[in-house]
Amino acid sequence: MLAVLSGGGTAGHINPALALAEELTARGWEVRFAGTPEGVEARLVPAAGVPFTAFEASGFDRAHLLSLPRGVAKIAASTAKARKWFREIEPDVVVGFGGYVSIPVARAAEKAGIPVVLHEQNSVAGMANRYLAKKAEAVCLTYEHARAGLPEGASVRLTGNPVRRQVVEADRASGRALFGLGEDDFMLLVFGGSLGARHINQAVVAMKDDLLARPHLHVVHITGPKELDAVREALALTPDEERRWHVMGYQDRMGETMAAADAIVSRAGATSLAEISALAIPAVLVPFPYATEDHQTTNARSYVEAGCAFMVPDAELETESFAQAVSLLIDDEAVREAQRDAARAQKTTEAAAMLADVVEAAAQPVARAVQ
């Protein structure tokens, strides 16, 4: 059996696709990936050992009307290219994870009679998934809230957001060894996503004296590459303080780093939240307020309401609300244990298998007409 996965634009589309690729490969499937030549997928997918084929696709800017016909022309050309490709490889199913590139790939599948499954990572469905949902065999959601943005008649399944095995199976002891942590040390992990989060950095820096007053506390602070120098300057750590406040611009061993954490401060992007949930890490979530339709706040809300984390609006980072939430998470083991139990109840570690089940069901012998 052969599955073609497609998505692009952000790692939030690609990581769950790679998690599904791992699950399908373990079940004996062959997997290929269709993405854009310039997107992060062009780097991440081959690095994961999944064969990659590039297709041009782009959206349009309403402020620049000429971008619309150019975008449409790219999608039309890529649809034709995908149909030709499908005649060569004969996939059994196509799975779209969002991003403009999934449109021509899914449209080509529809025209060839190949079943299409969609996966939506966020609480607000993206444009590509909304467009493709009506004809899809199934639309798999992370959050029930995303159903509201789909067309009537869409076949919806709630599967959660798949997380890659390198995160789910990450070793806590190896992660703690990275930072020289002992069993009695407490690790607070701070990060704002791949590009960092200036406002979170500033708020955590402001808590420096309070945090370091706890003798067994270590802060692992991933600032984002562009923020590293500014954070180092603002912290002005002494050599003794540097042993407990680990500052870095980027961390390529995030699975182990997260597994080592006792608590976390993070944005609420789909991938970050899924990984926090899969590892059951007590958290203070600070949704990025300028995400499309404020979807990070919606992402976080149901998770927080289930008792898995605290949420502090970005606008309150400079108030006592943020400092109190972080301090409570550090100082109260009962609060952390309650959050861990609630996170485990979300069963995020099962999301890849649940999505793979839907994909396999959709791909059962279907009369295809690959033309």
Score class of each variant (00 low, 15 high):
P91N: 04
P91C: 05
D92K: 00
V93A: 06
V93W: 04
V94P: 05
V94D: 10
V95A: 10
V95L: 13
V95F: 14
V95E: 13
V95G: 14
V95D: 12
V95R: 13
G96N: 12
G96S: 09
G96Q: 06
G96F: 10
G96K: 11
F97K: 14
F97T: 05
F97G: 12
F97R: 14
G98F: 04
G98I: 05
G98R: 08
G98Y: 09
G99T: 03
G99P: 14
Y100R: 10
Y100L: 02
Y100K: 11
V101L: 05
V101I: 11
V101H: 02
V101T: 06
S102H: 04
S102T: 03
I103Q: 07
I103S: 03
P104M: 00
P104C: 01
V105T: 04
V105F: 13
A106S: 15
A106L: 09
R107M: 15
A108E: 13
A108W: 15
A108R: 10
A108I: 02
A108S: 11
A109K: 03
A109L: 09
A109D: 14
A109T: 03
E110T: 07
E110Y: 15
K111S: 07
A112M: 04
G113C: 09
G113Q: 06
G113L: 06
I114P: 01
P115E: 02
P115F: 04
V116P: 15
V116Q: 12
V117I: 10
V117T: 04
L118M: 06
H119V: 03
H119F: 07
H119L: 10
E120M: 05
E120D: 10
E120Y: 09
Q121G: 14
Q121W: 06
Q121S: 12
Q121R: 08
N122M: 12
S123K: 14
S123W: 00
V124D: 03
V124R: 15
A125W: 10
A125Y: 10
A125P: 08
A125M: 11
A125E: 15
A125L: 11
G126A: 05
M127L: 11
M127H: 05
M127E: 00
M127C: 00
M127P: 00
A128T: 08
A128I: 01
N129E: 02
N129H: 02
N129T: 02
R130Y: 06
R130M: 03
R130H: 06
